[in-house]
Write a protein that binds this DNA or RNA. Structure first.
Length: 260
DNA sequence: ATGGTGGTCCCACCA
């Protein structure tokens, strides 16, 4: 029997959140941690500090915005790194795929979309369409697949603190939810939906209006697994502890545990 | 009606 623990965390600037990430790694001890919004160039990534903590890293960085990275205890297969959807040129560093310990891990920072009807919303829908097409090819290529990250979509009203207030807005709109469903339809399972652990339902709380204290949150950070992986899922938990720390990210980490 | 970044010492952009 062997365990595999994988997590995702939108850190909203790794430079600011470095102490939080190191502290959280020490207590949680995941095999893999997918980071989003590192907001730094690949050359600035603190590889040495993570190495001291027992992790190697694969990084697709960008100055100021976006940027994704995957930390892992096991060494990643660097010959399998993916940083773009095939045939879709995008300057924004939002995807990072790599095989680790026989599992293809795809880290996503889905565009936020700003507001329904804007150019950014359109970019989000086009981006999600490319994602779906890419996942359709992936699912035939790998036995074990985990797709995780900040999806910027709350799949159902259960994932929203006040659905009536959010109706039709970005993050919950029908088109975004349809894109989410079409991805699951390819053969992926929402780990939290299948096997929730603990009572934390949301993964993101706005910095404004004391949203965290009032638990006005949304579940927009997800871990999805192909059926082969999902058959070995033990549980999925959202850890809101670091959201209560000083100078936190607005997102909480999500962790899925598997056993083989 | 907060917080992060980056170019200018307050403001624009993004979430």
């Amino acid at each position: 029997m062997s365990a595999f623990k994988i997590a995702t965390w939108n850190v909203n600037s790794l430079k600011v959140r470095m102490d939080h990430v190191l502290e959280w790694l020490k207590t949680t001890n995941p095999d893999v941690l997918a980071l989003q919004e590192i907001k730094m160039q690949t050359t600035d990534f603190p590889l040495d500090l993570f190495r001291e903590a027992g992790y190697s890293a694969v990084v697709s960085g960008q100055k100021t915005y976006n940027g994704v990275a995957i930390l892992s205890k096991q060494t990643a297969r660097t010959d399998t790194i993916v940083t773009d959807f095939p045939g879709y040129a995008d300057e924004q560093r939002r995807i990072l795929g790599v095989e680790i310990d026989g599992v293809f891990v795809l880290d996503l920072y889905v565009p936020n979309g700003a507001a329904v009807g804007t150019d950014k919303y359109l970019y989000k829908l086009i981006w999600l369409d490319h994602l779906k097409n890419y996942l359709a090819t992936l699912i035939n290529k790998h036995q074990k697949i985990i797709v995780l990250g900040d999806f910027n979509i709350a799949p159902t009203d259960e994932d929203v603190h006040e659905p009536e207030l959010w109706r039709g807005e970005v993050l919950v709109s029908d088109k975004e939810r349809a894109a989410w469903q079409s991805i699951l339809s390819l053969g992926f399972i929402d780990c939290y939906k299948k096997s929730p652990v603990g009572d934390t339902k949301y993964s993101w709380w706005d910095y404004r209006q004391a949203a965290f204290r009032r638990n006005l949150g949304l579940r927009i950070d997800h871990i999805v697994a192909n059926t082969m992986m999902a058959n070995h899922l033990q549980g999925c938990e959202i850890d809101k502890t670091p959201r209560a720390w000083e100078r936190p990210s607005d997102h909480a980490p999500v962790i899925a545990s598997f056993i083989f």
